[in-house]
Amino acid sequence: MSAQARRAGGAATRYAILTVVSAVLLAPLVFMVSIALSSDQTTRESSFTFLPTEFEFGNFVTAFTSDLPIGRFLVNSTVIVVVSCIGMTFSSALVAYGFARLRAPGKGLMFAVLLSTMMIPAEVLLIPQFILFRNLGWIDTLLPIIVPNFFANAYNVFLMRQFITRIPGELDEAAMLDGLGHFGLFRKIIMPLMKPILVAVAIFTFTFNWGYFFGPLIYLNSEEKMPLALGIQVLSATSSGAQSPPWNLVMVGALILILPMVAVYHFGQKYLYEAGLVSGSAGLK
């Protein structure tokens, strides 16, 4: 067999493997859409088919108009994510600027402490944090989930600090000569230049909080306070009621949980690339 024929054979094998892998990876999503489009009758009988045979697009409306609080869940998720993203990007940027551009005794030690906090598993802090929030009267509110985002995060501070140190220092000097102080320099010069990394951190914060399950599970009791990730789990819990869960509407909720994730990565890719967080041409484009 000639080298060319062998290469063509190799390419065919490669396409065959990738097609099978793609089919296997997409299958769960196809099934999810099929369940989301099933009628209530099919849902009660749990007789879902892998490929959609019913097309109840009305489920996407019913999910919001029925007495199920899916619309409420979506509002809560949005509030959590928007406020958390604002808090996290601003607080982390401030802290990162301090570590990147200012000198002070104790800075090296503090940076070492900051980095080492990345290794602490959340479970170790969980119980005292729970007690703290309970004493503050924050149980069954969104505050325990949102507020910690306003106090920066080691990983994000680290990424932002790396980014700021790559911004040339001549800009600082020029700004200082123009009479800007460090706050002015930060706000007027550095922050605008940080856009890619600010967006990147916002994407990470979005990703984490949009799918965050553990915190809401612990802190929230009433359904009208729950975000989508917890809400759909509660609706699907078979232990909660005598009748079977409305799986078709639950899957509508699950799809709504997935779509913004795909959209954010699709549109945010460019910034992740500019921030130097995705090397090469890899990634979702």
């Binding site: 607080s91 401030l94 802290v95 600027y97 301090g98 570590f99 200012l102 000198r103 002070a104 005794p105 800075k107 503090m110 402490v113 900051l114 906090t117 602490i120 170790v124 802090l125 969980l126 119980i127 005292p128 944090q129 007690i131 703290l132 910690p148 306003f150 106090f151 920066a152 080691a154 501070v157 460090h182 930060f186």
Partner: peptide, 27 residues
């Protein structure tokens, strides 16, 4: 400059003490 450094870094310091250091010792 020292004073400014601590002003910029204060969100993390407060967060570290309240949400990490104290909870760690407490747990």
């Amino acid at each position: 400059e020292t004073w400014l450094f601590y002003a910029f870094v204060s969100p993390w310091i407060v967060g570290f003490v309240v949400f990490t250091a104290i909870p760690m010792i407490a747990s």
